[in-house]
Amino acid sequence: MKIRVLIDPDRDEEVLIYAHSASPQLRRLQEAIEKALSHQDAIAVKKGASEVFLDCFEILFAETSGDRLWVHTATDVYQCPLRLYELEERLPRGFARASKSCLVNASLIFALFRSPSGVGEARFSGSEKRVFISRRYYKGIRDKIAEMRLEA
């Protein structure tokens, strides 16, 4: 499917999709666009004293340390007032558990590595940040990446 963006300040903004038939992929695309337009995927996080509304698609991973939940983008770290399971419920399908205390955005994973001990590591494009993946969740993340590639 081709994507075209036309910039015309004189017309009303709309998203129009031409398709041969109504497919599950089309429905997901429609849902994703609707979500993005309604800002449902924005998560309220804190950076210092300021509250920031972070787009879920920018999140690389989120992990708990002590009693706090930290959300990482490529260049920043934010504190999230939610618990990890609450955040997991609010995040889109592209997120998966990397360990009991970490959620990773599988759609932004650039490479997966696995050590002889079975512990994995995820690397992201455009960032030096890395996430360790425990043995138990490694296969789940690989499957999630494969699933997302099939859908694309």
Partner: peptide, 12 residues
């Protein structure tokens, strides 16, 4: 082991 260190409140 492996430890990764991040700084928070970096703007301050």
């Amino acid at each position: 082991g492996n430890v990764t260190v991040y700084f928070v409140n970096a703007e301050n």
